[in-house]
């Protein structure tokens, strides 16, 4: 669905007006999986969005109300809050390719 045009537009925006990516990582307690997810997310962001991203980790065990408010079902979940539109991935982010597609991060360097 999301064809090639859209990301190109976004990358143009990025070039002209670099903005901060706001990413939220929802976890359920400090588990091996949530640690892995955070590590993977940081790695990918460093690789593709160095210096223009912000990661917010939300522990649902501490704030259970948020699970409902933000429609979280699976953990770990990453939501790209900015730039719009909202994007959502679930899983420990070990499959980098899928993370790039899910969060719409074009691997610009490799292209």
């Amino acid at each position: 669905m999301n064809n090639i045009k859209e990301p190109q537009q976004e990358s143009e925006i990025q070039e002209t007006e670099p903005e901060v990516w706001e990413l939220r990582l929802y976890i359920a307690g400090q588990t091996a999986r949530s640690d892995a997810a955070l590590a993977n997310l940081k790695r990918i962001c460093e690789e593709h969005l160095a210096g223009k991203y912000r990661i917010e980790v939300i522990d649902l065990l501490k704030n259970p109300q948020i699970a409902r408010d933000h429609q979280i079902l699976a953990t770990p979940t990453v939501i790209r809050k900015l730039p719009e539109p909202l994007k959502k991935t679930i899983g420990d982010l070990s499959q980098t390719e899928r993370v790039l597609v899910g969060l719409d991060l074009r691997p610009l360097k490799k292209e």
Binding site: A28, G29, R33, A37, N40, L60, L73, A74, T75, P76, T77, V78, K87, K88, T89, I90, G91, D92, L93, S94, Q95, R98, V99, V101, G102, L103
Partner: peptide
């Protein structure tokens, strides 16, 4: 998008 292992916690 499913990016790896997850649960329904």
């Amino acid at each position: 998008e499913e990016t790896g292992e997850y649960d329904l916690e």
